[in-house]
Design a protein around this nucleic acid. Structure first.
Lengths: 168, 168
DNA sequence: TTGTATTTTCAAAAATAATTGAAAATAAAT
DNA sequence: ATTTATTTTCAATTATTTTTGAAAATACAA
């Protein structure tokens, strides 16, 4: 396989994977391109490589910066902006975990806590099943939340070691 | 909060969370309803409670059964089918992990392995950055894959114990 | 200031995904 | 075999999400 073909396949696949996980395809493709580019890229570069509009690039770059995955570089004497991404995939994963936790898991934990506080009507199957299920989900969501938090703070090597122990 | 309001809020929130993770809203809502229902439900029940069409219920139930999250019950002497869901959230999480691993992670690992085998052109920044990034992503994806595999096989209590160790 | 390069915004258009509903299929009962 | 109950399928419709493109905003330079 040629390098160019490999790059294209990677950008393509990353976009597809992203949509399956609720992330905008183009956002993932821009991120992928920046991850494999040795130098920062301009809006024009991204427009040309992905064949998309200026507005699309602008909006998705803003989202990527909000996610803390892409950064802006200003070069003295130049008006246009350059963008680059964190290339260490472990740092990227930690950042994504951090944001998804904050944006999505935290509100769910809050709701589950509210639902847990709804009084159980003993003898009422509906009420009892509801509570048992919410309790069960609550435990698992808190477990996942804790796991993400631990992963976020840990080093890759530490996780790897722990995992090996868990597996044997 | 009334029980009915709590149920509605749960079903609603579960649907919203699902879309954020690339899962069809209605599919998640059907699953949520079945998880909090003490008895199996019919297509009619689901149509009425979620105010959706017969076809929609049928297709999403099939998907849920494909995911191994919902099961069919046939009652002797009755023509219509009853559906119920696994209520243990830890088992549900393991099943989801198993399916996402098989459907989504495995193909990515396969692609990354192919991309890793593209020869590096020493001195070519493009080629070198591409390879470094693919290597980095490969390590993290394999780590995540291993973590899901371990979680899938482990007991909830075991994960909890490991997590506590990891966090202190 | 005024002009110029560049980015951002956002209403409209296009693309994608989900849903409907009725016909076809299935399968049990008569 | 025919009727009846129920489920499935899928083309057409509807809803949602994404993208475009051009005007407005920004911000630097002359």
């Amino acid at each position: 396989m040629e390098l160019q073909e490999a790059k294209d396949r990677f950008v393509q696949a990353w976009g597809t994977l992203a949509t399956q996980w609720g992330i905008n395809r183009t956002m993932a493709q821009i991120h992928a391109l920046l991850m494999i580019s040795p130098n920062p890229l301009t809006t024009e570069d991204l427009m040309a490589q992905l064949q998309i509009s200026r507005g699309n690039v602008s909006m998705n770059l803003r989202d990527l910066m909000d996610w803390g995955l892409v950064f802006k570089e200003l070069r003295p004497g130049e008006r246009k902006e350059y963008f680059f991404a964190e290339k260490d995939a472990w740092k990227v994963a930690k950042q994504v975990a951090k944001e998804r936790r904050r944006r999505e898991i935290e509100p769910v934990i809050k709701l589950l806590d509210e639902l847990r506080s709804v009084p159980v009507r003993a003898g009422d199957a509906d009420s009892e099943t509801f509570h048992a299920t919410i309790e069960s989900i609550s435990r698992v969501v808190n477990l996942a939340d804790g796991a993400l938090d631990a992963a976020m703070k840990a080093e890759e090597s530490l996780i790897l070691g722990t995992l090996i122990k868990l597996l044997r």
